[in-house]
Amino acid sequence: MIRLRRRPVPPPAPEPGDVLAETAGLSVRLGAREVLSGVDVAVRAGELLALVGPNGAGKSTLLSVLAADLPPTSGAVRIHGRPASAWSAPELALRRSVLPQSASLSFPFTVEEVVRMGRAPWSSARPEDDDAAVAEAMAATEVTGFAARPFSALSGGERARVALARVLAQRAPLLMLDEPTAALDLRHQELVLRLCRERALAGDAVVVVLHDLGLAAAYATRVAVLRAGGVAADGPPDEVFSERLLSEVYDQPVEVLPHPRTGAVLVLPNRDG
């Protein structure tokens, strides 16, 4: 008897405030080191959540667990209301898209071919949307002009934008990005965060690992400040970003000031001492 594979069903559009990914009492141990301990965090539709904190605080590990790419040592992880382990890989691919810190390919794919890879989860669901999704993602990230170039021939910043285009083309309602601005110039850092904010305003849930506290303050709906594997604070940037907290977390004196024109939060290192 031939057993037919059940096609994964795309998720319904989330309602504002729906929790699309969350952890409860999360702990992760890698080797002898406990990287995360007792972490409770939620990613909601309509919000852009920035994970910030010093090197080694557990930001990328938390993102990997939220994406169901890394199993927890203990605690609960849920995606779209179900335990992360209950979803199959095809089902997950329709619900969340993930941008890792770096992208490398062994074969000479063109830029357009790389972006089109993001449509693979939809091959049996809505393939008629592929061309429009790919074109839209490439235009948004400004990579249309070199669609035919080999991915391997691109600069680091260009590769980062192409990798982001692949993730955007996937059109999952939960978008997870690990340091998406690290290789980008000033203009494209702003471009990426604007795209993230637009996705959140359109109703998706976006979680981004950032080192630039200014970008986090300018674009994030919420920030979770990680320190030594735990969440030191979680809330809107203008409430969470205080001189005392950030100076303690980063072990570096900082100043938190209002922008002279907009009043937005500015975070600067205090270089007086």
Rank of each mutant, 00 (worst) to 15 (best):
Leu94Thr: 10
Leu94Glu: 10
Leu94Gln: 08
Arg95His: 12
Arg95Gln: 13
Arg95Asp: 14
Arg95Phe: 11
Arg96Cys: 05
Arg96His: 02
Ser97His: 02
Ser97Lys: 00
Val98Arg: 00
Leu99Phe: 01
Leu99Met: 08
Leu99Lys: 01
Leu99Glu: 03
Pro100Ala: 04
Gln101Thr: 03
Ser102Ala: 12
Ser102Phe: 10
Ser102Gln: 13
Ser102Cys: 00
Ser104Phe: 14
Ser104Gln: 13
Ser104Val: 13
Ser104Asn: 11
Leu105Gln: 01
Ser106Gln: 14
Ser106His: 14
Phe107Glu: 03
Phe107Ala: 09
Phe107Thr: 08
Phe109Gly: 05
Phe109Cys: 06
Phe109Asn: 06
Phe109Arg: 07
Thr110Ala: 12
Thr110Lys: 12
Thr110Tyr: 06
Thr110Asn: 09
Thr110Val: 04
Val111Met: 00
Val111Phe: 01
Val111Arg: 02
Val111Glu: 07
Glu112Pro: 01
Glu112Gly: 05
Glu112Gln: 13
Glu112Asn: 04
Glu112Val: 14
Glu113Ile: 02
Glu113Met: 02
Glu113Asn: 07
Val114Ala: 04
Val114Met: 06
Val114Thr: 07
Val115Thr: 13
Val115Gln: 07
Val115Asp: 07
Met117Gln: 12
Met117Ser: 07
Gly118Ala: 09
Gly118Ser: 04
Gly118Met: 06
Gly118Trp: 06
Arg119Trp: 13
Arg119Val: 10
Arg119Asn: 07
Ala120Ile: 14
Ala120Phe: 15
Pro121Val: 03
Pro121Gly: 10
Trp122Cys: 00
Trp122Ile: 00
Trp122Pro: 00
Trp122Tyr: 13
Ser123Val: 15
Ser123Gln: 15
Ser123Ala: 15
Ser123Thr: 15
Ser124Tyr: 15
Ala125Asp: 11
Ala125Pro: 02
Ala125His: 12
Arg126Val: 15
Arg126Asp: 15
Arg126Thr: 15
Pro127Phe: 14
Pro127Asn: 13
Pro127Thr: 12
Glu128Ile: 07
Glu128Pro: 02
Asp129Gly: 05
Asp129Trp: 09
Asp130Asn: 08
Asp130Cys: 02
Asp131Met: 01
Ala132Ser: 07
Ala132Phe: 02
Ala133Arg: 02
Val134Ala: 00
Ala135Asp: 07
Ala135Thr: 04
Ala135Val: 00
Ala135Arg: 08
Glu136Ala: 14
Glu136His: 09
Ala137Cys: 10
Ala137Lys: 09
Met138Val: 08
Met138Tyr: 02
Ala139Ser: 12
Ala139His: 10
Ala139Arg: 13
Ala140Thr: 11
Ala140Ser: 14
Ala140Gln: 14
Ala140His: 10
Thr141Trp: 12
Glu142Thr: 10
Glu142Gly: 12
Glu142Trp: 09
Val143Pro: 03
Val143Arg: 05
Val143Asp: 03
Thr144Gly: 11
Thr144Lys: 11
Thr144Asp: 13
Thr144Asn: 09
Gly145Trp: 08
Gly145Ile: 11
Gly145Tyr: 09
Phe146His: 06
Phe146Ala: 03
Phe146Ile: 06
Phe146Gly: 03
Ala147Pro: 01
Ala147Met: 00
Ala148Ile: 01
Ala148His: 11
Ala148Tyr: 00
Ala148Leu: 10
Pro150Arg: 08
Pro150Gly: 02
Phe151Cys: 12
Phe151Ser: 08
Ser152Tyr: 11
Ser152His: 14
Ser152Val: 12
Ser152Phe: 10
Ser152Ile: 11
Ser152Ala: 15
Ala153Val: 00
Ala153Asn: 11
Ala153Met: 06
Ala153Ser: 14
Ala153Gly: 05
Ala153Trp: 04
Leu154Arg: 05
